[in-house]
Amino acid sequence: MNIIQYYMYRMMRVPKTCCCLIIILLLCNSFAIAQNTTIKGFADLSVLYDKKLSFGFGEQDLFITSQLNDRFSFLGETVVKYDPSAETEFGVSIERLIVKYNYYGNHNILLGKVHTPLNYWNDTYHHGRVFYPTIDRPLIFKKEIIPLHTTGIDFQGQNLGDIRFGYDLMVGNGLGSPPVSDNDKYKSITTAVHIKPIDNMRIGASYYHDIVSKGAEVEGKTINWKVKQQLFTGSFAYFGKKFEVLAESTLALNKTDTTGVRQTFAPYIYAGYKITPKIIPYVRFDDVHYQEGEILFTKDNTTAFVLGLRYQVNYLAVLKLEYQHTDAELEGKQDMVTFQIAIGF
C-alpha cells in the first residue's frame, strides 16, 4: 500500500466514529423539544514543555441530560479521546450512562455506569476539564488506585437534614468486568457518606470492597491471583469565596493467599487562593506509596508537586498554567510546564 492509499484508507475509517456521534446529536435534537433535554460539550487544548515543546488536546466530551418525566431522568457522557491502539488513533468511550429515579424527597436510585462515588474528586469532577481546579486529576487516579467507573445500581440520598447529609450505597460489576456485564459472581460494594456543615464545605468518608478473580484483566494487566480489595477514603473539601482546600486520603488493602495484605497509601492536598474571583494561584501535593510485594497495582512509589495559576475567563472558559515536578520510582524525576485552555459549549 503506498502513502496515498494509506491516507485514503485512514480517511474512510475516521467518519464512522463521527457519524455515530452526529446521529446521536441529531436524534437528541429532534427529541429536545418534546422533553427537557440539554446537550453540552467540553474540550481542552494544551501546550506542554517537557524537554521538548508539544501541542495537544484532551478528550472531547459530549454531555446530555434529559428529564424524561416527573421522576425519571437520564444522563449520558460520551468521550472521544486519543487511543493509539485504535485504527483511527481515536476511540469513543461511554463514560457515564445513568437513568435516575427520584422515588421520594431527596432519595434516588441510579442505574447504569457512574463515576464510583468513592471520593470528592471522582464524585464532583467528571470529564469536563473546565471544572477542574487543576489541569489534570490527582496521581491517585493516574495510578489507578481508585476505580473510576462502576456499572451497577446506586441508592443515593442528598442534602438530608440541617447538616445536609448525603449517602451512596452502590452494588456493581467490579474490577475486571467490562462495562456491560460482570466477569464473575463477585460484586463490588461502595458505601459513602458525607456532610455539608456549612456552605461550600463537604466532609466525607467511604469504603469499597471487591474481589478480583484470578485471570481477570484489570487496567490492561492480567491478574494471576484472586485478590480481595478494600479501599478506605477520607475527604475534606472547602471552596469558599477566598480560599480553596481539598484534601483526600485513600488506604488500599489488597489481599491474596500468597502475599497476605499489602497496603497502598495515597493522599493528596490541593490549596488555592482567589486573589480576585478570576485569578487563582494554587498548589497541589500528591503521594502514592506502595508496600513491597504489592500484587494488584504496579508498584511505583511517586510524589508530585504542582504549582499553578488559574484564570477564569467566564463560566465556560478557563486558562491554567502549571509547573509540575514528579519523582517516580520507575521513571525518575521529571519537570513539566503545561498551559491548558479548557472550555464548555
Binding site: T38, K40, T65, Q67, I98, H126, F131, L316
Partner: peptide, 11 residues
Amino acid sequence: LALVFQGKADG
C-alpha cells in the same frame, strides 16, 4: 452547570 454535570440537580 457544575451541579447539572454532576447529575445532582436539574438546572
